[in-house]
Nucleic acid binder design. Structure first.
Length: 848
RNA sequence: GCCGAUGUGGCGAAAUGGUAGACGCAACGGACUUAAAAUCCGUUGGGCCGUAAAAGGCCCGUGCCGGUUCGAGUCCGGCCAUCGGCACCA
């Protein structure tokens, strides 16, 4: 032990209480029907985004959210809820595998070590997780059910009539494989040569892999896809009933990117036509050319003899470009004329058909009608290639029509002239529909989810191939466990490492196993369900347990979900999608997984920079706990500032909070001659005086409300005010200090438990552990002042103060003549108004 | 470019339209101590007037400009800066 004396013995009492909690399993939440389950209590499910157990261990960012949920969990328990508060490990993923590639060690070994480290670090902070429910996505007993859920998805289709997933057996078409929610397709994928795998759109940032930052290129490959686009509409609409930050909802809506408009057919000749998607059918008369994506299948059919060489050359050039290049070199528009023409159905004019890489094959129909006067990109293109420009929208203001992309009045458009853009859209769409040349259409930016990876360390697909066709394994064959390998390295050719295990791949004489694995997101798409019933080996989650913990009168099952904004689109969208499929199939009771979502802000280094190894500004929780204890660490994490805001770490700040806890300690404990801590003689079985009563009840109120609203920093401030008020008093009433310890307990449970125990040894008025105590209520009456000070403002300036009884009458609360006349130069705009104002302020004071 | 968040002392931050800066850090002064640490008490936005010293008083101040209001950190309009997301999505 260090020679320096601790301000209070946290180094002894913290391990002591952690051992007691573990021994008595105080935070275990029994399921309905199990021993100790109390059906009279309402449930509350509080969840953290579970971590990837990296080799580096915990940093101070992790426990920020975990501390907040722990405070809420402890608070809810004291309020009489059955609280489900679990923790687990999202352990499939690249780092463990890359380490395996280097060392030859099986990733399961590294994972086990890292989990042990994370777990011991979390335990040191004193979190009240129900460790009996710990899960690990790489455990075969867990991923057996991940594979099982995949089978449900594979064996379902989205019925557009009912807008729900249904078993594939209800599909009446000829080719069920074409409608499954999990399907195989040759798609242009994000291929990352360095990582040797394909990546989802969401995993590619600025043309580079999100993990590692390696270049990513487009390349067509045969891949497993999940039909998330079928749920686009519901994923937008059903955000409505969730208590999520508006910003996160918006992020999801934008990612899904719904646009309404029309599909319009442009005739080329008697047997060919081009279909385009537009959100502005009202600008059809301004369409002076068409542009197809270079990869568009129609291109082969329409290119004229003399244009072939140019088209071929352009297509090859585009195909070679990586996403990064396509994005970066986009400053200048490029394109090639196909030599073909189409008829604009409105003007009946012949317009040229071009190809250009600013038109994407994957969105809409892969073709657009160029309306240069009212679209920036089309305008740039038309100017570069000297194509005609026709203005068809008149802005309402004094802007010029050319280049105007907003809504206005239709002009030069015989059928819809004079109509507003909104009306014009409706009318021209109806007109096209009548003539069979177009129809209303909705498009989404969201693409289907590329679900396969060419990696070792992930869930194998429960699929085999026979005669070139895929089929699912039966449930009884789960889990499909990956074979051990000598070499985990990706092949680089796109063939997954699992393909090397020849024996394993040969499923039967005729059938071979699928060798792709699932992406890391798979395990985290449903872990919150497994927590409800983690040891069930008959079902992915027991029906009763699911109904209880995921139930309630709101659409989302988890009451509170806390984690970082970095998962705003990926994890949260994928999990919602899986949950909806399971809901449609009748496996879960609510349509949404997470009711209330709160995002924690990032913690920066002391230098106000993002924490990183290279900057050397990383703070290790272990060091902080060694020096100041877990309670101080927890409280500082919460005291730093508003929970959702980004904020820098401060070593001095931790010291301040540690001092506060030491003051709490010394409020109850004093040192005797032998240097031993003993309960202070100042604590007496007596009634608090009026002022003490007031600060106590103000503290109960503030702490209670602030926990509910995630304003933990101001809750701690109020507790500091309480302690300051009781420092240096002659006598401390035991009831007041008991109540205070209950309030402190969620924030600093070790010290609160210890002091509570010390009080119990001397005073016999209350029994039992602090965690079993009910949360105190407060009495508004005790908070009101008898007398309030009111400031007199004249023309907005502070001019005088006056004291008056809180129950003063209207007459009595008039500013006194003295305060108004003491300076002649003050003018009073409205005397009566001032009286009203004073009344108003007084009412407010009274209320708080 | 579009969307969103944020902007308050030396620092982290508080403030249902009603005394801006609670609480904490740092700094300074005092008590205790042989001394230091720890602890406790006090001062602390800026400028000016006042006084022997006090007491006291005035003006300015929440990124910038304007507006609404008796009264604006808070509401409205316009700008600037920082951070985050999206980015040829027709």
């Amino acid at each position: 032990m260090s020679g320096r004396r601790k301000p209070y013995p946290f180094d002894q009492l913290e391990p002591k209480w952690q051992a007691i909690w573990e021994e008595r399993q105080l935070f275990h939440a029994p399921n309905p029907g199990e021993k100790g389950f109390d059906p009279a209590k309402p449930k509350f499910y509080i969840l953290d985004m579970f971590p990837y157990p990296s080799g580096a261990g915990l940093h101070v960012g992790h426990p920020e959210g975990y501390t907040a949920t722990d405070i809420v969990a402890r608070y809810r328990r004291m309020r009489g809820f059955n609280v489900l508060h679990p923790m687990g490990w999202d352990a499939f993923g690249l780092p463990a595998e890359q380490y395996a590639v280097k060392s030859g060690q099986h990733p399961a070994v590294t994972t086990r070590e890292n989990v042990a480290k994370f777990k011991s670090q979390l335990k040191r902070i004193g979190f009240s997780y129900d460790w009996q429910r710990e899960i690990n996505t790489t455990d075969p007993r867990y991923y057996k059910w991940t594979q099982w859920i995949f089978l449900q998805i594979y064996n379902s289709w989205f019925n557009p009539e009912t807008k729900r997933a249904e078993p594939i057996s209800t599909y009446r078409g000829t080719d069920p494989d074409s409608v499954r929610l999990a399907y195989v397709a040759d798609v242009p994928v994000n291929w990352c040569p360095e990582l040797g795998t394909v990546l989802a759109n969401e995993e590619v940032v600025d043309g580079k892999s999100e993990v590692g930052g390696f270049p990513v290129v487009r390349r067509p490959m045969r891949q497993w896809m999940l039909r998330i686009t079928a749920y686009a509409e519901r994923l937008i609409d059903e955000l409505e009933g969730l208590d999520w930050p508006e910003g996160i909802k918006l992020l999801q809506r934008n990612w899904i990117g719904k646009s309404e408009g029309a599909e319009i057919d442009f005739k080329i000749d008697n047997d060919k036509k081009v279909r385009v998607f537009t959100t502005r059918p009202d600008t059809l008369y301004g369409g002076t050319f068409l542009v197809l994506a270079p990869e568009h299948s129609l291109v082969d059919l329409i290119v004229t003899e003399e244009q072939w060489p140019a088209v071929r050359e352009y297509r090859e050039r585009t195909a070679r470009k990586s996403d990064l290049e396509r994005a970066e070199l986009s400053k200048e528009k490029t394109g090639v004329f196909t030599g073909a023409y189409a008829i604009n159905p409105a003007t009946e004019q012949k317009i040229p058909i071009w190809i250009a890489d600013y038109v994407l094959l994957g969105y809409g129909t892969g073709a657009i009608g160029g309306v240069p006067a009212h679209d920036e990109r089309d305008l740039e293109f038309a100017r570069k290639f000297d194509l005609p420009i026709v203005e068809v929208v008149q802005p309402l203001g004094d802007e010029q029509a050319l280049g105007f992309v907003g809504e206005g009045i239709a002009i030069n458009s015989p059928i819809i002239d004079g109509l507003t853009s909104v009306e014009a859209k409706k009318k021209i769409t109806a007109w096209l529909e009548e003539r069979g040349q177009g129809k209303r259409a909705v498009n989404y930016k969201l693409r289907d989810w590329l679900f396969s990876r060419q990696r070792y360390w992930g869930e194998p697909f429960p699929i085999v191939w026979q005669d070139g066709k895929h089929r699912s394994l039966s449930e009884t064959e789960l889990p499909v466990i990956p074979p051990p390998l000598e070499d985990y390295k990706p092949s680089g050719t796109g063939e997954p490492p699992l393909a090397r295990a020849k024996e394993w791949v040969g499923y039967s004489e005729k059938a071979v196993r699928e060798t792709n694995t699932m992406p890391q997101w798979a395990g985290s798409c449903w872990y919150y369900l497994r927590f409800c019933d983690p040891h069930n080996d008959k079902r992915f989650v027991g029906e009763e347990a699911e109904r209880y913990w995921m139930g309630g009168d709101k659409p989302g099952g988890v009451n509170l979900y806390v984690g970082g904004t970095e998962h705003a689109v990926l994890h949260l969208l994928y999990a919602r999608f899986w949950h909806k499929v399971l809901f449609d199939l009748g496996y879960v009771s609510k349509p949404e997984p997470f009711q209330r979502l709160v995002n924690q802000g990032i913690i920066l280094g002391e230098d106000n920079q993002k924490m990183s190894k290279s900057r050397g500004n990383i703070v290790n929780p272990d060091d902080v706990i060694d020096q100041h204890g877990a309670d101080a660490f927890r409280c500082y994490e919460m005291f730093m500032g508003p929970f959702e805001q980004m904020k820098p770490w401060s070593t001095r700040g931790v010291e301040g909070v540690a001092r506060f806890l030491a003051r709490v300690w010394r409020l109850l404990m004093s040192e005797n001659q032998a240097g031993k801590w003993e309960l202070s003689g100042k604590i007496k079985n007596a009634d608090p005086n009026k002022a003490q009563q007031k600060v106590l009840h103000a503290t109960i109120k503030k702490v209670t409300e602030d926990i509910e609203s995630f304003s933990f920093n101001t809750a701690i401030s109020q507790m500091m005010i309480f302690v300051n008020a009781f420092t240096n008093v002659e006598m401390i009433p035991v009831v007041a200090i008991r109540t205070f310890l209950i309030l402190l307990n969620p924030f600093a449970p070790h010290i609160a438990s210890e002091l509570w125990e010390k009080l119990n040894a001397k005073f016999s008025d209350v029994r039992g552990d602090i965690t079993k105590q009910p949360w105190p209520g407060y009495d508004e009456q005790l908070l009101t002042e008898d007398e309030v000070e009111i400031v007199i403002q004249i023309n907005g300036k502070l001019r005088d103060r006056m004291k008056m009884p809180i129950l003063a009458t209207h007459e009595e609360s008039r500013p006194s003549a003295k305060s108004l006349s003491s300076r002649e130069s003050w003018s009073i705009s409205s005397y009566e108004q001032d009286v009203e104002r004073i009344q108003g302020i007084r009412r407010k004071r009274q209320r708080c």
